[in-house]
Simulated assay, not measured.
Amino acid sequence: MDVYVSSGIATPGIFVQPAGADLRSASNEEALKNIWEEVRACFGYAKPDGWRIQVHKQGEEIRLFGRSGKEWTAAYPSVTEMLRTRIKHEQAIIDTELVGFDQEGRHLSPDQLSNAFRYRCYLLDVLHLKQEDLTQRPIRERLSFMEKYLSSAYHDSLIFANYQWIGSFKGLLHLYQECRQKASRGFDGTIIKRPEARYFTNALKVKPEETVDAVVVGAYLDDEETVNKLLLAVPSHVRKTWVPIAQVAGKGASWNTIWSACQPYVVSQQPEYLEKVPHTPHVWVEAKVVVSVKMTRLKLGTRYLVHADAARECLLREDKGPREATSFEEAYQIAFSNGEVKEREF
């Protein structure tokens, strides 16, 4: 089925490019104070750790779109049927986060979503409801709209993200600590939105442990010709290039899944617009496959403009497209805030 992309007007059945989130790292209270100085009064909620899914309803038809616009309706029939049953409105576009759990009720990482025993959709935002495009309304009005017109849809499998009003630094600190305590229950950081923010205004995503979404652009082989490391890069929206950020090693089922996803994109030469690579890989990969990777910190360097130090725990993110990876500019600002060296021009 063809997927059409809206140019900014929310129309059911036409995918709307979702609002993004600017990454912030808050490993200590001082870093969180800097974030408070940036945003002041705001709404915030604990970010569920799953796939961002845009739900479109037209009559009895439900369609599920990932962040990149790829349609996932057929892949998740039980979720589709649940949404068809719970959402009573004839037409709607709703932003959700789809999270998976195993038979014991334990949260599954996003790369295991398709293997889940049961699912839960968190309602994050609303773009279209009651025959109205809501994307130009501020978030405070959209939240009221959801509460008024979607409360009857709430269910164990479809629940409202727990937005909280934050009017002070103490309030932000309390929410952030609460979000960290929820990490083992399937939450991943804190989302912050200014009260007047329209839908297409980027939110802030605040995380204690530094992770980035990067794109695989190369692979390194061991003596047995097995892939044991991947070369990762991030997109620079200013430079219009791909900027190498780290090598990451791995093994096991998740690692094999990542490399299987890369194989259709193996190419014979360096990908276009990829900047200088510190160590040339044995295999080049077109910049198509997105992974999430943990690290000790982001730091400015010489071999890498920004280096994901001690990169590890690489997971496939099928729900994201290459341009939705963490940007070089975001990574640079986080690295610069760590105080490694003086700021440079891009």
Rank of each mutant, 00 (worst) to 15 (best):
I9Y: 15
V341L: 11
A325N: 09
N115V: 10
M1N: 10
W72S: 00
W242I: 11
L315R: 15
E71V: 02
P48K: 00
N34I: 12
E29G: 09
L123S: 12
E343N: 12
G186N: 08
F101P: 09
T190D: 04
F346Q: 09
S109C: 08
L83C: 05
S236P: 01
T11N: 11
E345W: 15
A31C: 06
A219F: 04
F187I: 02
F160S: 12
D2P: 15
R52E: 06
C262E: 04
T85W: 14
G100K: 03
I334S: 00
E343T: 13
S7V: 07
G250W: 04
I87R: 07
G44R: 03
K88S: 05
H89V: 02
A325I: 01
L274Q: 04
S78Y: 03
K148H: 10
L124V: 02
R84C: 02
V341H: 12
H56T: 02
L23V: 07
T302A: 11
I53V: 06
Q269C: 08
E29Y: 11
I192E: 05
E210W: 08
Q131F: 12
A10H: 11
R303H: 14
D133N: 06
R297N: 10
S184I: 12
V293K: 03
F117R: 09
A246W: 08
E38W: 10
R106P: 00
V290C: 07
V39I: 15
S254W: 14
L204P: 02
I14H: 14
H279I: 12
A310P: 11
L230C: 08
V79E: 01
L298D: 05
Q58W: 13
V215A: 09
E275Q: 13
D223H: 15
E141K: 08
L32D: 11
T80L: 02
A325E: 10
S327H: 07
R118N: 11
V206H: 01
S114W: 12
T96N: 05
V285H: 14
Q136W: 09
V216I: 11
L158H: 11
L127D: 10
A311K: 04
E272K: 14
I139G: 06
A203F: 14
L173A: 13
H89R: 08
A31R: 12
G186H: 02
K205F: 14
F43Y: 14
S27R: 12
V291M: 02
Q270P: 09
L204M: 03
F101K: 06
H279D: 12
L32H: 14
A331S: 03
T226H: 15
I14R: 13
D319F: 08
K342Q: 14
T296M: 08
H128M: 07
E330N: 02
G339C: 04
D222Q: 00
T96P: 04
G189P: 02
T11S: 09
R140S: 13
H56L: 00
L316I: 04
P281K: 01
K294Y: 11
Q17H: 14
E318N: 13
Q91G: 07
V39F: 06
V291T: 09
K70M: 05
G105C: 06
L175N: 08
L143V: 07
E329G: 04
V277E: 07
Q333H: 05
G171S: 08
L124K: 00
I159S: 15
H279K: 13
I191V: 03
D49M: 11
